[in-house]
Design a protein around this nucleic acid. Structure first.
Lengths: 230, 230
DNA sequence: TCCAATACTGACAAAAAATGGCAGTATCAG
DNA sequence: CTGATACTGCCATTTTTTGTCAGTATTGGA
């Protein structure tokens, strides 16, 4: 196996283990000596991988993804830049920041002339209507989706009625004027959508909901809906 | 110089030369033997670079960008996916396809479990209002921007008045309901915006306009405008 | 306090990969 | 047909990667 392929593998192994792993174990799993493992770790860190090693503990990787060398066409790069600009502008918060960081990372590895071209890329995102506020909960919602955790929320619907619900969030819709959490609602025992800005309180639980989010998403997609309702 | 760095270099050299270059020249410029050059070309092609070689002619690279190995955080990848989905949904046409291709390329290099995660990524783009049609000209406009070429257009403004103009397009704005070409207008001798769907005819010229698009964009940005007007 | 577990570094020989040279074939344009 | 070039296989040489060994440093727990 080539060295570069092995580096990818190492990232994968680290991703699988959520707990710290000793260098010795990693080396065994990769079939290399521990000395080479140290060199590999150093190489990955130099490439921006967020690996931390502590004496007596082992190595751990912050969740993330390593892309091997990759070729994009001009159109593809323009699409990525335009999309990231839209996210940075419309999503705001940590996700918007992440979009900016992703662009910055891409820019930082391009030669100077291309970096300038990317900065000056001529596709702009219009201002559009202000997204309705109330996005304090958005990061918590995204995290709950990722971890498939139940959320307890207080919600006020369009006619002003309040309710308390436990929901299984599995997707987040970005509309022009609002964000909508797509969930299974324990109260109604059915799929329900909630506008993020109408969630008045939100409590993260540690309880994992009993179905896979990919399956929920698939079932939800097969339902007949033109547009999500609240 | 490490092999991987040299491969990046080779891409750059090919990018610089717009005409075909012989392998011998490339090898000389890189300081390697021609035999190694052939191996490098093969490696790049295997990584997806669009290099074509013809006997008697030389090598040429379709415009594009090679990214070295790169690490993204979970948030950053979600932002890229969401942004690409937005482009694919709202931009449509070749640019939308390019967004899909970019995602597919990223997906194809990820291990299986991550690819599934990416497919099932839980950030969705709402349908939003239909973008007004009349996008037949969009690709031509993007190309003219890239190449800094003048365009001759027939335009019908919001009150129904028609005009013929020569414009220097330097940016393209994506609004919720329309796309707007941002240009220098020879008729008015000033910056002007044109909704893409109101361009009734469009003729690509081969004449390069006399200023750099990055400079035009910078000057335009420094003007005081809340929202672009037509 | 000491020990066990681990991260990490430098030096150097052994193993593996990359490289260059050569000989040759294939294709294309004129 | 010829000249220019792409491309392949083979193999000796050069460079890079790897493993081993001998160390140092840090941390948590006995």
């Amino acid at each position: 196996m080539s060295r570069s392929a092995r580096l990818l593998d190492l990232i994968q192994i680290l991703r699988r283990h959520r707990q710290p792993v000793s260098g010795e174990n990693l080396a065994r799993e990769l079939g290399i000596s521990i000395r080479t493992l140290y060199r590999d770790i150093a190489t990955l860190q130099a490439q921006g991988a967020d690996i931390t090693g502590e004496p007596g503990i082992g190595y751990i990787l912050k969740p993330g993804f390593m892309l091997p060398p990759l070729m994009f066409s001009e159109d593809e790069l323009e699409a990525l830049v335009l999309g990231s600009r839209w996210v940075s502008r419309r999503a705001g918060g940590p996700l918007g920041k992440a979009a900016e960081n992703a662009l910055a990372k891409i820019a930082s590895v391009l030669p100077k002339d291309l970096r300038e071209q990317l900065d000056a890329t001529n596709l702009l995102v219009g201002p559009g209507d202000q997204v309705i506020a109330g996005d304090t909960h958005l990061s918590a919602i995204r995290l709950a989706i990722r971890k498939e955790r139940k959320l307890a929320i207080a919600y006020e619907d369009e006619s002003g009625r309040s309710s308390e619900r436990t929901i299984w969030p599995f997707a987040l819709g970005f509309f022009d004027r609002a964000r909508v959490v797509i969930t299974w609602c324990e109260l109604r025992n059915d799929f329900r959508h909630f506008r993020a800005d109408r969630i008045t309180r939100l409590h993260e639980t540690d309880i994992r909901y009993p179905r896979r989010k990919a399956v929920l998403l698939k079932e939800w997609r097969e339902l007949d809906h033109g547009k999500p309702k609240n």
